[in-house]
């Protein structure tokens, strides 16, 4: 039923052109059907008072048919950018790049250059892990860094179909979003190609960043995908 509703919604959207989704899944025409499309980014403390932070980057999605999904692209470097002094410029990066059946991770270390181009930090290897199929293959390095790369459930949830009706205004959606059974998670049943890194906080170092509520000691992070030129 959920797929049916989605496809009905897509039928409407097809009339107006490219289908774009969230959180960052298929977010712009230039990344649609693209193996470098970022789907999502998570960063969290895995348990209360844990000395580690978990970083998850979801690439690609199969939420819609005919999208690039299922294989990490050897020409696409994924980079987690970390600002530690509140200037919105990356002070260190963690990188991931597949070769064959293995995902190689680098950093955290200063990038060769800030901004929209960069190189692989071959002198700062973090570790590597075999790319999983359905069963999760994980590894933990001598530094206590756990690594994973492979297909996983898409944890994002959003009634994207109704959102697009809301964007059309009250003529289409006079009551805005739905409630109860009429509200449908578009991402139910979808998968992404996920990179998961659990890293000791001490490897990330100190930060002087401040969040919008004035909380001090926060990293400012963002993820990019970068295609080999």
């Amino acid at each position: 039923m959920r797929k049916t509703k989605l496809l009905m919604g897509l039928g409407i959207l097809a009339i107006v052109g490219v289908v774009l989704v969230a959180a960052d899944h298929i977010d712009a025409p230039g990344t649609t059907s693209n193996s470098a499309d970022i789907a999502d980014f998570y960063a969290f403390e895995p348990s209360a008072d844990s000395p580690n932070t978990v970083l998850i980057v979801d690439l690609q999605t199969n939420v819609l048919p005919d999208l690039a999904y299922g294989t990490f692209d050897e020409d696409v470097l994924t980079e987690i950018n970390i600002d530690t002094n509140n200037d919105l410029i990356e002070d260190m990066v963690i990188q991931a790049l597949p070769r064959g059946d293995t995902m190689y991770f680098f950093g955290p270390a200063a990038p060769t250059a800030t901004g929209i181009t960069g190189e692989v930090l071959v002198d700062s290897p973090l570790g590597s892990v075999a790319i999983s199929d359905t069963e999760a293959i994980t590894t933990t390095t001598d530094d206590g860094v756990s690594l994973f790369a492979g297909p996983r459930q898409d944890a994002f949830y959003f009634d994207f179909t109704q959102f697009n009706k809301v964007l059309e205004g009250p003529a289409t959606a006079p009551l805005g979003f739905n409630i109860g059974d009429d509200a449908v998670d578009t991402f139910d049943g979808a998968n992404t190609m996920s990179l998961v890194i659990e890293i000791p906080n001490e490897m990330l170092g100190a930060t002087t960043g401040v969040n919008p509520l004035g909380v001090e000691g926060v990293y400012k992070m963002w993820v990019t995908t970068n295609r080999k030129q």
Binding site: V21, A28, N34, L77, T117, F156, K220, T224, T225, Q229
Partner: peptide, 21 residues
């Protein structure tokens, strides 16, 4: 393994939904 070359940004995300919404 060949990790050489220059890589240029094609997608970017911090908070969820910013670009989409």
């Amino acid at each position: 393994l060949d990790f050489t070359g220059t890589y240029s940004q094609v997608d970017f995300m911090g908070r969820p939904g910013i670009n989409t919404v």
